[in-house]
Every structure is written in structure tokens, then in C-alpha cells.
Write a protein that binds this DNA or RNA. Structure first.
Lengths: 267, 267
DNA sequence: AAGTGGTCTAGACCACGGC
DNA sequence: CCGTGGTCTAGACCACTTT
């Protein structure tokens, strides 16, 4: 059970257990009481509770108490696969492999994958469907050496991330995704069953293993009429505290917008 | 400038000033040294530095020191105004009011603002520029009764949120923003100085005051060639600490993607 | 070994909410 | 008023990195 070396992590887990036994809206015991119960100082107890508040399990009300929070509507967008993403919305994901080829990386792809331009890359093009209607076209690139023996049928009804983990022992650690608006070309329109020039999202995702190595570069085009993003915006400062007219503080980076300074990024 | 009631906020700002005078990668003074310099305890100093680390200004290296971080490609998107958003990227924001009118809400707008369809609404249309080049067209709707006496010049070089806070005492508490790809029509293309049918982002934002009342509904169209979104994807679990198989922890919900079930939203 | 950040304590006082 | 969370202190010891 990988005992936490830190007291506050252990306390966090214990308080979380306590929370699980309570109803939404119920108050947890006062901080000083919990301190005594767990035998820790208030600073340590608060650090544990701070975490749970950040994670959305608890709400604090100054002068009143700490309460079990409403389950969040918008859960974190983590390292979700297409299948996960669709299932979460009550749709049935499916997939149709359009092509599975091996190509030489070349300069731009080599840069994205941080490998030699002469390295071999497996390239999978898939049509992604939700409730049997086209949703996106996904083009996935993986360094060949990472996935020896990869075959088209491996991808039929398995999440690619599961495949990576279970067959190749590769654990995804982090990713960066850029999002742009685009319009569909004729071929994309036909595949997605919408008119050419329809608006669409272009996602480009780069994922790294826990070791820091780039595992995949994915380029996906999503139908703009079926797919929409939602962002929950939080006020600059979590606290009631004011001040700081100059800069907006950031609680925890998750989404950011960035300028594309050079519209002609060599890709 | 609204002196911070909290010592750690004031310290945060002072440390940030210090950081601004250093190069990327340079070490800041040791924590104990800063404590003495600012005359605060180490816990307080650390809380200030914690914030700056979370905000991406500093990197800590255990046993080694605290260093000025590489400017983040992906800064946090909070309840940021356009001006903030641009400034953060080193661009100079400006604004050009295209129109300021009063209209009757009507059904769709009334629904967005949660007011009567017969209520009056101030409607501001603005061209938003970055470094004097068009970036977005923003159409803002606010219930008239919330902003009596609003004039066009009020919006010239003030953040709308500042105006709300300082003049009308309205504090923004939370917001929900949807993002879709779209293409520009002829008028939008002309205003933004790009060809008609160019890809663009359509943002729709609904903001609530801390009291829960809807304060604004904003519809913005951003040039797709100049504006790009970035999402940092994190794996399901951040810590090494395990336990809790049941619920996916949310470090901090910020973005979620949602399906648009009915492509013909009556808007 | 010396210096750094990381954790933790046992208090204290303040600010807010509700009785 | 009392109980709650919010801030702050002045230490202590631990864990890690560097020399």
C-alpha cells in the first residue's frame, strides 16, 4: 500500500475515508477536533484538508465549517482516450481503421516525436465513431521501435493506451494538446459525412511516458457540429482576499490559451 | 492599490518583483534568507513561494534551491479578461467599441441570462486588438439594471470586470465557457482583416456573480490563425500515493468536453 | 559537511457566521 | 457571544544536493 512518507498525505486519506461515510452537505468535524483525533498539529491537518478542498471533495465556509461538496459536474479532463471521452457522455464509441503504415519520420514528425528524421514510425489512421456516426478522424504516430508487432486488429476494440500499458509496458505520464479551429477538406468531409469546408476542431496531442519519452503524436479532426468543448472558469483568486490588481493568480494550470506567433509553423 | 490583508500575498508580490529582475534559471535567495529580509516566518514565506511555483514562475529543486522558471508556454486560463489574456502573452491589448445599444432580451438571450425575455439588456460589440491587429470580435450582454449609466467610454481602457467590481460592486464568482469551431462570415472577416470563411473559435461565456446571479453572456469570435488553445493533460493520478480506487480524483477541474446533442441549438 | 528545500509542531491571534 | 476557519510565528528535524 505504498505507505505515504508524509503525514499529511496519510491524514488526507483518512479524512477522505471519513468523507465517504457522510452525505453531501454534511459537515465534517472541526479542524481542532480532527487534529486531536489524528494526533497531528493543525497546520498538518489543514494541509490535508487543503488538498481535499482543491480536489473538490470538501467545501470550506469561513466561520461556519467544512462540508462535503457536491460531486463536481465537470470532472477533470485527464489523459482521456477517445473511447473514454465518448463513454463518459453516454455514447458508444467505435473505430474503423483506415490505414496502418510504416513511414520514415521526416523532419517535422521527427521533431514532434523527438526522434531522428530517419527513424521509422507507425502511422495509424482511424475513423472514430460515436453511436455509429462519424465523429473524428485520428492520425496517430508512434515510433516503430516502441510497438513491435503492432497490427491493425490490435486496435479494433482496445484503447490504444491500454494496449501500450498491457502489451508494451508503457505508462503515459503527461501530454500537451493544442486546439485550433479549422475547416474540413473534401476527403475529410466525405469521411465524416459532412460538407466540405465545415468547421472542425484540430487537436494535436503529444504524449510522454512517465519516463519522459514522447510516445505518440496524434492529430485529430473533430466535427464541429457534434463536438464542443466546455471550460469551467474559476475566479482569479480562490480566497475572498482581494488585492493584486496587476496579475491574475493561477490555482492549477490545466488549460491555457497561447498565441500562435508565427502563423506559419513549419508543419 | 487595495493593500493585501494577507501577509503572504504581499510577500508573494514582493518575491515576484524580485523574480522579474532575474534571468531564467537564476536562483532566488534561500528561503531562510528571504524570511529575514522580509521579516516573516518561514511558513509564511513558503506559502508565498508556493503560490509562485503553482503559477509557474518558480521551480523548486529539493536540496538545491529555487529557480526562476522557463516562461510557461501554457499559463492558466482563469476568469481572465481579454486584456489579461493578451498581456500575459506579451501583447498589447486594445479595444474598439463598435456599438453600445440597449435591446430587449428576447427568448434565447433571456434564457442565457436567466431573466425575463422582456427585460432590457445592454449590448456591447467590441473589436479586440492585440498589438493593434484585430484578434477577436466580442459581443457582450448584461442586464441593464445591473449597470445603470454605462457609457461607451467606460469601456475604452478598463477591464469590464474591473468596472463591474469598482463601479457596480459586482464580483464575478464563476463562469462556464463553451468553445466551438466556426467560420467567419463576410462582416466578421472584414472586421478581423482575414478572408471570409476563415476558421475561427466561437466562445460563449456565461459568468455569475458570487451571489450566483448571471452577470453577463459573451459571445466572442477569435481568429483561428492568431489564437490557439493549449491543454496540459495530466494522467489520472498525480501522486505516487495510491488508495482510493473508486473515484478518480480531480486535481482541479478546469476543462471538460461535452457533446452537443442537438446540433440545432435555437440560437 | 554545509546548504538547500520539505515537513511538522504547539501555540497565538484574527475574521467571519450564527445563535 | 462562541465556535468556526484563516493567518502567522519561531522554532525543530528530516531529506536531498552539492562540494
Amino acid at each position: 500500500m505504498a505507505a505515504a512518507p508524509n503525514k499529511y498525505e496519510s491524514i488526507r486519506d483518512q479524512v477522505l475515508d471519513l468523507v465517504h461515510g457522510l452525505d453531501v452537505g454534511a459537515a465534517i468535524p472541526a479542524e481542532r477536533e480532527l487534529c486531536e483525533q489524528f494526533g497531528v498539529s493543525r497546520m498538518t491537518l489543514r494541509r490535508a484538508v487543503d488538498d481535499l478542498v482543491r480536489e473538490g471533495y470538501l467545501d470550506r465556509r469561513h466561520g461556519s465549517g467544512t462540508f462535503v461538496a457536491e460531486p463536481k459536474i465537470a470532472q477533470q479532463l485527464t489523459m482521456t482516450s477517445f473511447s473514454e471521452d465518448m463513454r463518459r457522455r453516454g455514447l458508444v464509441p467505435s473505430s474503423q481503421t483506415l490505414s496502418l503504415t510504416t513511414v520514415t519520420a521526416g523532419a517535422p514528425l521527427g521533431r514532434h516525436l523527438e526522434i531522428s528524421p530517419r527513424a521509422q514510425v507507425r502511422r495509424v489512421r482511424r475513423l472514430r465513431l460515436a453511436d455509429d456516426r462519424p465523429m473524428a478522424i485520428e492520425t496517430l504516430h508512434v515510433p516503430s521501435e516502441l510497438v513491435p508487432g503492432l497490427q491493425a486488429r490490435d486496435l479494433v476494440d482496445t484503447s490504444f493506451y491500454e494496449l501500450l500499458a498491457e502489451r508494451y509496458g508503457i505508462e503515459i505520464g503527461a501530454g500537451l494538446q493544442t486546439i485550433e479551429p479549422t475547416v474540413l477538406n473534401a476527403e475529410e468531409g466525405e469521411l465524416l459525412d459532412v460538407p466540405e469546408h465545415s468547421p472542425a476542431f484540430l487537436f494535436e496531442r503529444t504524449s510522454r511516458s512517465v519516463g519522459g519519452r514522447i510516445v505518440e503524436f496524434v492529430r485529430s479532426v473533430y466535427r464541429g457540429d457534434r463536438y464542443q468543448l466546455q471550460v469551467e472558469l474559476r475566479p482569479p483568486r480562490t480566497r475572498g482576499g482581494r488585492a493584486d490588481g496587476e496579475r491574475v493568480s493561477a490555482q492549477d494550470p490545466a488549460i491555457a490559451s497561447a498565441m500562435q506567433t508565427h502563423p506559419n509553423s513549419p508543419e
